[in-house]
Computed example of a mutant assay.
Amino acid sequence: MSETPAYTPPAVWTWDTESGGKFASINRPIAGSTHDKDLPVGKHPLQLHSLATPNGVKVTVMLEELLAAGHAAEYDAWLINIQEGDQFSSGFVDVNPNSKIPALFDKDTGVRVFESGAILLYLAEKYGAFLPTEITARTETLNWLFWLQGSAPYLGGGFGHFYAYAPEKFEYPINRFAMEAKRQLDVLDQRLEDCEYLGGDAYSIADMATAPWYGALVKGQVYEAAEFLDVASYEHVNRWADTVMARPAYLRGKKVNRAWGEPSEQMHERHEASDFEDKTA
């Protein structure tokens, strides 16, 4: 293992505002708002405030799937630019005290929902869709939804951070989190060898949650790590990713609240289905 500068933790940690990294300007060790600003409100019952990161894409895919299935789930999607600190506005903090995207407010029920997995579960239960009602199938689907919620931070905040975003490359954390990312891919690959979707035979919120993370990983859409992690070797994950990520609702959902990449793939806000035709960047 290569040598790295020795680091001795201090007795009491203090925040170094000069520490580097892509997200240094938006990270801080305290909660709450930094400025007063109300959130915009559209005409639809569901008000989504988000950005097209993997966690944001989960929810917009779910909403587009609900609409495609004929449910009355029209929504307004408002862009939260985390690089500019939108997540620290007083309005956003009222909906999500954790200042992370996505956040949903349902005008019909007066309910706020934060944490992407909780939003998927809320929508599935509200509309009776993409979550089985039979106890065994429902539990297996929720097993995989919560697996994703617990595992993705190791992929994004662990492997992705140290491999792609940290200001310096260090062997130990990259090796540590590469090992975990590959173990997780193997967990998925073994599961998907035996069934078409994560919950079993039916497409569900477990697939919607997982595809923007691990599907995007094996398709080379995040971290530029496909060769490094030998993602092509996970045959069943690739088969599943091809199926899920080709769904029309997935293709629409991944554009919503996207503010980077090809202009045709960006739709900063979404208020009507017709926006996909005439409101891309």
Rank of each mutant, 00 (worst) to 15 (best):
G32W: 09
P29D: 11
A31N: 08
D36R: 04
G32P: 09
T34C: 06
L46Y: 10
S25N: 14
K22P: 07
K43A: 15
L39T: 02
T34H: 03
L51T: 04
A24G: 06
R28W: 02
V41Y: 13
P40Q: 08
A24T: 03
E18A: 15
A24C: 07
D36S: 08
H35K: 04
F23R: 04
S50V: 02
I26T: 11
K37G: 00
L46G: 03
I26D: 08
H35I: 02
A31Y: 04
K22I: 02
P29I: 10
D36C: 03
P45M: 03
I30P: 01
K22F: 06
K22E: 11
D38V: 02
S19V: 14
S25C: 07
H44F: 01
A52W: 03
T34A: 09
K22R: 14
P29E: 13
P45Y: 13
G42C: 05
A31C: 02
P29T: 13
Q47E: 07
I26F: 00
V41I: 12
V41S: 10
I26S: 12
K37H: 06
K43P: 10
K37F: 05
S25E: 10
A52L: 09
G21A: 13
V41R: 14
P40S: 06
A52F: 00
A52H: 04
K37L: 14
A52I: 02
G32V: 08
D38Q: 04
G32K: 09
V41A: 05
D38G: 03
K43H: 08
K43M: 06
L51F: 00
S19M: 14
V41P: 05
D36Q: 09
A24W: 01
K43L: 08
N27T: 05
R28V: 01
S50W: 00
I30S: 07
T34L: 15
A52N: 15
S25T: 11
K43F: 08
L46K: 06
V41K: 15
S50H: 01
G20I: 00
S33K: 10
S19W: 15
L46A: 07
S25I: 00
L39Y: 07
A31S: 09
I30G: 02
D36E: 14
P45N: 13
I30H: 11
S19A: 15
A24F: 01
E18W: 10
A24V: 03
Q47I: 08
H35V: 05
H49K: 12
A31H: 08
P40G: 02
N27L: 02
A52C: 12
K43Y: 05
A31V: 10
G20T: 05
L39E: 04
